[in-house]
Amino acid sequence: MNVSLKDLLSEKKPDILNIWFDEIIDTYPADTSLFLKKQKNRFHNPVGHAILHGTGEIFDKLLEGYASGRGTGAEEIAPFLDNIIRVRAVQDFTASRAVGFVFALKKAVRSALESSVRESGDIRAGLEKFDSMVDGLALAAFDIYMQCREKIYALRAEEIEKRTFRLLQQANLICEVDEEKKDLDRGE
């Protein structure tokens, strides 16, 4: 029974991706979203490119996971998810909105498969499984989001460290000439 949903998902893949992509893009200001959609040069539009490519790859992996029954396969998906979330983590989004785009996939699948979902109980059952995979994806997304934010704070700390490293070296030097020199000498 699962096979039929798989086929359906493969068949409707372009539609699903289009809807999903639009849903994500619509989280940006109106005048920006069209730029993100229309500008196809990946260097002029890194954000749009990351989303376009990321969603395609993520969907393929999910589909593979679904077909083989392996489930979400968060580790394999992580790099693609990372490409999108790394961008959103530094944009004007709350944590929930930064990763919430994952759930939009559910909506995208439903609107693309609308009629089939209504008609077939099997498809509905299959969808439940697919949905739980998307939930798994969302959890992975949240982990990545947290890593990105932690990275930002780590970078701030690192910069300070880099800037003060030579100063600390210097401080040691000063210590040597000061009264602590004796202590150091004794220690050696």
Binding site: T32, N45, V90
Partner: peptide, 13 residues
């Protein structure tokens, strides 16, 4: 409009 790195990266009009 779309030549600024801050616009490209932020989408802030």
């Amino acid at each position: 409009a779309d030549k600024c790195h801050f616009y490209i990266g932020s989408g802030d009009p």
